[in-house]
Design a binder for these strands. Structure first.
Lengths: 344, 344
DNA sequence: TTACTGTACTGACACGCGCAACTGACGCGT
DNA sequence: ACGCGTCAGTTGCGCGTGTCAGTACAGTAA
């Protein structure tokens, strides 16, 4: 908490070489600082002859000049940084991929992307004070107090990826599609009584809710019974209990939609404990397509999001909102697809 | 690439309420700006009577004042941000956990932690220009050109977590311990001929090398034969081939150290294809203890790093280096431990 | 000659902050 | 009365930008 890092900017190295400023470039080029600024930002409505421009570029290159973000941010009142607040539940390969894709997508619009893991328990409010991003992206909707603080800190835009049921600022990524595709896949294979493997971790609620909702909708649309929802812990024994309960149900459940691939793997382990064959006795569909899914026993059929398309959509939304333009239209059902393997 | 986001700082909302500055606080408190600054930073060697301090705090609270990082960074020449450059290989739960722990560890020293995924292919150099962090942490050692650029941009400190074999700036996290513990665990269980399941992905080389080196060392120390190294792809069929080769070796390999848990899962799947019993016919030890390991078939014995201790060490190193003090001593072998399950 | 127009460029300010240097008032010993 | 030290603050500079308003000059028209 305390600022125990010395702040003299020089460190122990003492006389560190000052990094070049626009003034240095101007001096080298034999021009004024204003001209340099106009050239380097090619400011509209400012006509600079080609010869002069080249002089500036040459000087800048020679000195290895790069503008100070701190000064630019101070001057313009905003930075080109987009901050993603990571959720407090353990992040896996899916989120990892989102980070990467989002980073490239935003970079194409000139925005720099960084992620900050919200330290469990600590107040979130300190982060943006140290970054002043142009936009803050969260997984779940922030509560009102947090939002107020954010606005007070001068952040123009906050975007929540999920949990659109609760707030207006949400992007409402169509996570129901995941559940819908799981159920449809099982229905096509002839399963009439589905189970839903609900995650044990309460922190993923905002994520699990829409997925289950999707399964519910699909069941209703296809004339199937309501899904039989059971909480499945990430242990073989706990999962075995759930599997037993599904088997004992009347009529027996024959197809399981799992909240994600990990829960699905637990179901596989639970089934194995009872000698129940997958997919013969019971079929399982996961979600997210983590690497472990491909090498599960049996290899796991799962629903995969098109992270690149998703990230493009998110990036597009952010850029448009920053410019006061309306959001792009929501992506269709094509951003999710079923990866057919052996478990269903 | 292009700056297509407008930068007028007001956005379309037009007359956005200006956020309060230290001057506003001073005005409200009926004091000068300097006094406010002294109080809020409780600057050493500045004596401010309690009554005045309270007046400042009250005014700050009333206005909801929070200092502008941009201005502070401009003035002091550095920010309190530590930037972690994520590697270009897919990041999983292990890295995820590192992020979280590192964030809390650094927060305790007053530093803000953010991560940036290096977009595949794009030059890395643009990132720190948009953040100007106090320190940059990388997984692998940067090459000389990158390092030069970094220094030119005014970054004081760069730290590489792994790959100490190549460069002097590396922290040299003792990843060999992971391999050593894997081998020792198998040796104690009576295995004399070990195999090493090498990852298919060339990007994780800097990670895999020290782990294998640890296995090699342990084998030498314990008088075992050299480990039999085979590349294991993340597919059941590919892994099955490797397993067959290990079985066919003369003498046969009975214990496998896997580069990480995913590779270990692949080995399990490969063994299953041939009807080979784990751990009866062949024992498998993973690394990292990802969630899927606990629910593998059979549950995977693995080596787990103590991420919290590791993060504390990293954070400590960074803080000390920023202050010009010597690095703390390397953590001992106790930061890794074997999680005993059924696969070995 | 003067007035005007466009080109090519410059001077100076403000952004918000930290901090060194200064000021004015008071108490105290001589 | 004078010098000195302490208290309780204030004035003012500079960090590096982006940009507005302005200037010097050449060219053209009246």
């Amino acid at each position: 908490m305390a600022r125990e890092v010395n702040t003299d900017g020089a460190g122990r190295t003492g006389q560190r070489r000052r990094r070049p400023t626009a003034a240095d470039v101007a001096r080298t080029a034999g021009l004024s600082r204003a001209t340099v600024s106009y050239v380097l930002n090619d400011t509209p409505h400012q006509v600079i002859p080609e010869r002069t421009r080249q002089r500036v570029f040459a000087a800048a290159a020679e000195l290895g000049y790069s503008p100070s973000v701190a000064a630019r941010a101070l001057r313009s009142g905003r930075s080109d940084v987009v901050l993603l607040l990571l959720p407090d539940w353990p992040i896996g390969p899916t989120v990892g991929q989102l980070l990467e894709e989002l980073s490239t997508a935003l970079a194409e619009h000139g925005l720099t992307f960084v992620a900050h893991p919200r330290s469990a328990g600590r107040p979130v409010s300190d982060v943006w004070k140290a970054i002043t991003p142009a936009a803050v992206v969260t997984f779940e909707e922030l509560d009102d107090i947090e939002t107020k603080k954010l606005q007070a800190a001068g952040i123009e835009l906050t975007v929540a990826l999920f949990g659109g049921l609760r707030g207006p600022r949400a992007m409402d990524i169509p996570e129901q599609r995941t559940g819908r595709l799981q159920a449809e896949h099982l229905a096509i294979a002839g399963h009439r009584h589905l189970g839903y493997a609900w995650p044990d971790d309460p922190r993923v609620l905002t994520f699990a809710e829409p997925r289950l909702a999707g399964v519910r909708q699909a069941c209703a649309d296809l004339g199937l019974a309501e899904p039989h929802v059971l909480t499945v812990p990430l242990t073989p024994n706990g999962a075995a209990e759930a599997v037993r309960a599904w088997q004992a149900a009347e009529p027996a459940v024959t197809g399981i939609c799992a909240y994600n691939d990990e829960v699905a793997l637990a179901v596989l382990a639970g089934a194995r404990q009872h000698g129940i064959d997958v997919p013969g006795d019971i079929a399982v569909v996961g979600a997210d397509n983590i690497p472990a899914a491909a090498i599960a026993i049996p290899p796991l059929t799962t629903v995969q999001p098109d992270m690149q398309a998703l990230s493009d959509y998110i990036a597009d939304t952010i850029v448009r909102k920053l410019n006061g333009r309306p959001s792009p239209k929501r992506p269709g059902s094509d951003i999710h697809s079923v990866i057919r393997r052996d478990s269903a």
